[in-house]
Design a protein around this nucleic acid. Sequence first.
DNA 1: CCGTATCCCACACGATACTG
DNA 2: CAGTATCGTGTGGGATACGG
Lengths: 111, 111
Amino acid sequence: MPRIDDLADECTVEAALEVIGGKWKLVILRHLLDGTMRFGELDRALDGITPRMLTRQLRELEADGLVLRTVYPQVPPKVEYSVTEIGESLRTITGMLEQWGQDYRDRTRDA
Amino acid sequence: MPRIDDLADECTVEAALEVIGGKWKLVILRHLLDGTMRFGELDRALDGITPRMLTRQLRELEADGLVLRTVYPQVPPKVEYSVTEIGESLRTITGMLEQWGQDYRDRTRDA
DNA sequence: CCGTATCCCACACGATACTG
DNA sequence: CAGTATCGTGTGGGATACGG
């Protein structure tokens, strides 16, 4: 059992990973940071994701306070997803990560 | 099969996640960014990791060009791990992620 | 000291079909 | 449209023991 000092040191990275880790979370956030989107829009934007996965990821993001889910009680149903203030605070990081991914790809496109 | 334009748009985030994704990669990088470390040091620093996992993660990081592995041919063996230039380019991101994890914890410590 | 070998499992992730 | 229901799988991750 680690001491409290050890925890405070770097486990915050692990804490962050528990919230934004996984295959889809950051990609979803990346889209939502460009503006509110409906379920179907996300489903189409995220190539390869199944509705089941999308639902799960969105629910987790909502539970963690990063995403806001707005249901319009009408027929046919309409549900919109947007980033909360906390989610918004990830804008810089996702931006940098995207930039880094691009640079990395450039650096390693010699195979 | 997505078009090249689609790929260029946001899949760089996914590309980045393939390199630094998973439970340990960023945590290992975070340590190595503070300076060169030996295998045993990392093993002790990363609470809960097994030598098998540590080896695997380090090999993958090395294969992806983020970490440099230096073997000193002596008995007992001595192996040092350090970040490459590419790994170094992640310093800002890991720093921000750590900061974000801290802020997130503060914001949500009301349960 | 720095790993491998072997075995194991949960669960993240996926395909397909169906419904209010 | 916005999801469930059901079923299935790969692999990321782990425990323990041993080797150069």
